[in-house]
Amino acid sequence: MTAPPRPGADYGRISAASDEDLAAELLALTPTHEGRDPEQLRDWARTALAFGRELADTARAGPAGPGGAGAEVTDRATGGLRPGEVLLAEYLHRAAGDRVIVYADALDYARGVAEAAGWGRDYPRAALRGAALAHEEAHRMLHRGHGRELRRRLGHTALRLGPLRVRGHVAGADEIAAHAYAGRRGALRRSPLALTAAIAATLAHRGPDQHGPGPRTTSGDRP
C-alpha cells in the first residue's frame, strides 16, 4: 500500500463539498448511526464542528502548542499503513502517562493522496504532521472533560422518563470536533476532513481488504 489509487470523480466531489457535508457523511458511517435521520446527523455535525473550532480558539490562548501539554510524542517511520487502514496518528491514554504516536508512512500516503487530488500545496508535509498532533491533542482534551460539554451541546436525548432526561453520547462526534480543532489550529489550507474523505475514497477504490474482516471467514463452525 504505497502508491494510492486515483479515484478522480471522488476527489472532485470532495473538493466541492463543505465541511458540514463531509462531517455528516463521516458520522453516517460511524457504527450506531445506521438508519439515523440525515438531518439529525447534519445538525450534530454542525454542532461538533463549531465546538472543535471553539476549543481550538480557546487552546490557542493557552500555553502549550499542539501535541504538547504533557503527552509524550513519538514519531514512527512505519506502522501506519495496515491492511485496509491508514493510521496517521494515535493518542493513548494510560495510567503510566499519555502518549501520541505519529506515523510517517501514513503521512506520506496522505501526502500522495493530496498530490493525486491536486491539493499538494494545501497539505505540506510539516503542516500535515502538525495537524495530526493537533487532532490527537483534541482527543486528549475531549477525553479529559471537554467531552461532557460537547455532549451537552449536542443535546441528544437517550432516555426521557417524564421530566427526567438522560443525555446520550453521539458516537463519532468527538472525531468531527477533533478534525475541526486540527483544521483551526494547524497550518493546513484545506480541511483535514477533505483529506480524510479522499483517503477513504482511495481505500474504497482499492476494494475490500484481503486480510481484513472477511466475508470469506467461514460462518457457523463450532469453536
Partner: peptide, 27 residues
C-alpha cells in the same frame, strides 16, 4: 482496559459493507 488504556486515532479504514460484512451471506 486499565493496562491498555483508551485509544483515539486519526485513522481511515475501508468502509464496511452494509450490514457489517457478516459472513456467509451474499452482499
Amino acid at each position: 482496559m486499565r493496562r491498555k488504556g483508551a485509544r483515539h486515532t486519526w485513522a481511515v479504514r475501508v468502509p464496511a459493507p452494509a450490514g457489517g460484512g457478516g459472513p456467509g451471506r451474499p452482499a
